[in-house]
Design a protein around this nucleic acid. Structure first.
Lengths: 316, 316
DNA sequence: AGTGTCTCCGCTCATTTGATCGGAACTGCT
DNA sequence: AGCAGTTCCGATCAAATGAGCGGAGACACT
């Protein structure tokens, strides 16, 4: 028996009354005949000594602890981390989509303008959306090559707009054309011009994150051979909407800047809320890159990625 | 997945920041763009829903939770409950004595007058005492019959006084005599009168609790046969110093009132701090009785007794 | 639409709490 | 004993928090 059990004893007694019985510190102090400062200090030591244990138990499938660490490490506004074992990207698309849907349902407010790129996670989100705030929805980039129909970005924009009861501004056109003259004509096309003119007013943009590991990215694999070579020479790790990102998070110029039908890098930067969704360890390099560059304000990912990212000591 | 994980999610996020990262509610509110009231309500629900778990871990061998419940159930000022398995009284005497010693060392203040009765727990306490506040010590009752030397109350008073560096007022005399005339003479005896005259000024009294189950109580077994019969007719369950207590906690008159060399029941009542020590299930009836009658302000006991007592639903 | 109920929100005002400070008491050292 | 270093304590003032209230919006029912 320690010679003075009563110091810690009193600490645990005070802590019990304060935390478990909701008595005020002053009240406890009066009853115990000590000053309220002493009570406060006892509680402090109880906390420090581990006499008081406070534990936050997640009751959903979200890991809020990882989320919080991730959020702090990369200066995000919000991080949502789906808890669970390491799974391949494919298996994560649907739950992440659900999460994106839920997040949008709870955070968008009437009258905002939502920008959407494309991707499987967004497609899953679109399916899961039920009721959205009354927002208008604009397509942030034309259709990339080799996209199957279920991911048709135009369809996606309509789905969101319908759920929101707002207007849809789809972009009927390819993400890029190789002929500079043709780009000019397309951009002048009224429906396309209408959509693209709204890019500066987007309140929130939702995009998947594209990995540039060979054979993974839609965008990478859809690029013309010479573009891709050029991009890989710059060590591009990720694409976010139409912006290519190197391992340090810097934007790498690409032909899309001139011949794309899409949000420009500058426009992307200016969007107040940039929501990026993507999970699975295959994407961890891409996600790290976009986080480093500060391209993200809200990240929606899974625990495997989050664990990897917070396990790295660096902070930005 | 619940349709709205984000309500609880936000609750756990807010709770994490509040409890684990010590951010203020206002701070959290600002960062999240919600009102501080909403933060407070989220934390409230997190508490209510069990998202936040707060646990007080005792680091000593004291069970503060039982102590607190006991304290509340019987309106005690302080309860100390030694944690551990059910043990017989004998095995508890030494640890309880240590506890009494520690308690006195931490709570007595210079200049007070400490009253002591006798008993094995007090003897153990006396052995464990090392440094006490500078108090004077007065013996609250004469020596009962059949007490072995180690429990000699006079010796006890001296030990305490020596540890305290204060004066000792022992009572050289028996706890009672059967001849009323002799009592008068003894009470007039200067050293005895000196001690007894201080009974009204006692700040804190430490007593063991005596059980009146046959063959257990020192006091009971030491009583003359006719006194004991009379007491048992009144269903006496306990003695506390020289006062006999029935199962409801009422004081039962006894010859000690007239022929005892000891604190009277009225004097006992007036002592501000009445510290009662005793443990072991054999004593539970006695302890219950003295608690019921409000004879105790500080109870020092063991977990088996505490469990039993708080397990009974009644409150007084 | 009208209406009663209900929940949720943020305001005001009083209370509770924290940050910071200087002084008292204690300790170890000369 | 005398003295620096340390710890502990409680006061003050500002900040954080809680209790309670009324209004706005959602919902169900007429």
């Amino acid at each position: 028996m320690p010679k003075r059990p009563l110091q810690k004893l009193q600490a645990s007694l005070v802590a019990r009354r304060y935390y478990l019985e909701n008595q005020t510190k002053s009240e406890i102090a009066d009853k115990l005949g000590i000053s309220r400062f002493k009570v406060a200090r006892l509680i402090e030591t109880a906390l420090k000594e581990g006499i008081v244990h406070i534990e936050i138990r997640d009751q959903s499938d979200l890991n809020t602890e990882l989320a919080e660490r991730l959020r702090e490490a990369y200066g995000l506004n919000v991080a949502l981390v789906l808890d669970g074992p390491d799974l391949p990207s494919n298996a994560l698309i649907e739950p992440l989509g659900l999460l994106v849907a839920d997040f949008l349902e709870e955070t968008l407010t009437d009258g905002q303008l939502l920008g959407l790129s494309w991707g499987r996670t967004l497609a899953a989100a679109a399916k899961a959306i039920s009721k959205l705030a009354k927002v208008d929805v604009v397509q942030a980039a034309g259709s990339p090559a080799r996209l199957d129909l279920s991911q048709n970005p135009t369809e996606l924009v309509h789905r969101f707009a319908r759920a929101a009861g707002g207007l849809a501004y789809p972009l009927f056109g390819p993400m890029w054309v190789e002929d500079p003259e043709l780009v000019g004509k397309l951009r002048a096309e009224p429906s396309i011009a209408d959509a693209m003119s709204r890019y500066d007013k987007i309140d929130a943009l939702v995009v998947g994150v594209g990995s540039w590991r060979p054979q993974e990215s839609c965008l990478c694999s859809g690029f013309p051979e010479d573009w891709r070579r050029e991009a890989l020479k710059h060590n591009v790790q990720a694409d976010i909407c139409a912006t290519l990102i190197d391992p340090d998070g810097q934007a790498v110029g690409s032909p899309l800047d001139s011949v794309g039908l899409c949000l420009s890098t500058e426009q992307l930067r200016r969007i107040p809320e940039r929501i990026v969704a993507g999970g699975g360890l295959e994407k961890v390099d891409a996600i790290r890159a976009v986080l480093k560059g500060g391209w993200v304000t809200t990240l929606i990912t899974d625990a495997s990625v989050a664990r990897r990212l917070v396990g790295e000591v660096v902070r930005y």
